[in-house]
Design a protein around this nucleic acid. Structure first.
Ligand SMILES: [Mn+2]
Ligand SMILES: [Mn+2]
Ligand SMILES: [Mn+2]
Ligand SMILES: [Mn+2]
Lengths: 230, 230
DNA sequence: ATCATATTTTAGGCTATTCTAATTTTTTGT
DNA sequence: ACAAAAAATTAGAATAGCCTAAAATATGAT
């Protein structure tokens, strides 16, 4: 019986899911930092979650944690709710794209299956969230993605913005003001090895935009290999 | 500083508000029964809430509790959110009127002021909830009401349904099927002193409906004193 | 290989909420 | 007025989360 998961547990699982996409196993320190709690609290929680009836985490002392299949499903369930809620808050209640995350982060733990289904239907069963995030299917399948960080791009490469990190409202407002939103096509003009700045131009715009690594590391893109004739 | 109130505290205040509308001070036993917890838990909670910086409750041992002005405001804030949410779930997400209460009872503790305001706006700043409940104004004013229980009515009196108790889904489905919804006018045909049954006929309907006291005690009505000439 | 640093875990505590069982207070019925 | 019954309170304990400070373990640099 997977009884009900508490808000805290859902947030831990969600966080571990996201962190283990890049790195493999995740250390308690990183989880603590991401969640804004102390490492001691994380150790405590991961020990509890790895000792459940069907464990949600795979944990060994000093080895970090990984999600079990059950933990992964629970994480994806919460992520689906979160992303549907963000879209809903924007499209139905008129929230701006920098406001939705905080509200969704609380609501995601409280809505019923029924609510989730009705929201999905009102939104037309979307596959992408407000910031370009893929939304897990109702059956909790998550598409594999080949997106790269804008950070990795170099001059003359073309790309299309796929997703932007949504947990910094200030950054989101800036990106929106610059037209850097999912779907926007662009070309990289210049790369500066000293500070990792990228200079780029959005399709259909004259203006050139210079972005530092702390921004380009938050943006996922699809890189279009440069056409032979150009 | 009234820091954030927990879900449990909000539910206690809401419950005490409703109970103290009929009776004056409320005993711990009644609160316990309504909330589905033990009397010991209630004693504990009311002692905490009456000992806060600005107390939310006025409590004296064995004397029951009453809300302070702060407690009343907090209760009305939660009640406003609850009733707006019920309407929203019905009108925007298509919930039926017997489904909304349970969902709203969880969401009411989690939505932000922003969410409340946007929902109110989408709904057109309604004054009445889905089951006829008055919705406290944004400034938390609650209209005085003179509604009576259907229970108290006698033959030949006419009335208009104002509000039905919404915490029993089965009853709500029954009432809807009979056309007993807020706004419905009716006349009382008969009263049986033995079992307190009432027989009545809804305006624009031929059918007669017989209701027992366990139902008529859940329905608030406005009684139209019988016109002189009829 | 060894020591210094960084990371992780343990130990001990705190708050909020609830429970059960025991006790106290109030109410009621004679 | 008094005992029995009902209601309320206290005492003691559990669970979930979180914290700080101390101890243990791992890493990595000479
Ligand atoms: Mn988000
Ligand atoms: Mn969350
Ligand atoms: Mn309700
Ligand atoms: Mn509630």
């Amino acid at each position: 019986m997977t009884g009900h998961l508490t808000d805290a547990v859902e947030d831990y699982l969600k966080t571990i899911y996201k962190l283990s996409c890049s790195r493999g196993r995740v250390g308690t320190g990183l989880i603590a930092e991401t969640l804004g709690v102390t490492p001691a609290s994380v150790t405590d929680m991961v020990q509890r979650l790895s000792g459940e009836d069907p464990p949600l985490l795979d944990y060994a002392k000093h080895q970090g944690v990984a999600l079990t299949e059950g933990g992964r499903k629970a994480a994806l369930e919460t992520i689906r709710r979160h992303r549907l809620l963000e879209l809903f808050l924007h499209q139905v209640l008129g929230y701006s794209w920098d406001q939705v995350h905080v509200e969704a982060d609380r609501l995601e733990h409280v809505i019923s299956e029924e609510f989730e289904e009705r929201v999905a239907e009102v939104l037309g069963n979307p596959r992408r969230g407000l910031h370009g995030e893929p939304i897990p299917s109702p059956g909790l399948e998550m598409p594999d993605r080949e997106d790269r960080y804008l950070l990795e791009m170099r001059p003359n490469q073309r790309g299309i913005v796929q997703e932007v990190n949504d947990d910094d409202p200030g950054l989101l407002r800036f990106l929106e003001s610059q037209g850097i939103v999912p779907g926007a096509g662009f070309v990289v003009l210049d790369y500066s090895a000293y500070d990792d700045n990228l200079r780029l131009r959005l399709d259909g715009s004259e203006a050139e935009i210079v972005l530092g690594a702390s921004i380009t590391g938050q943006i996922l893109v699809e890189i279009a290999e440069p056409q032979a004739g150009a």
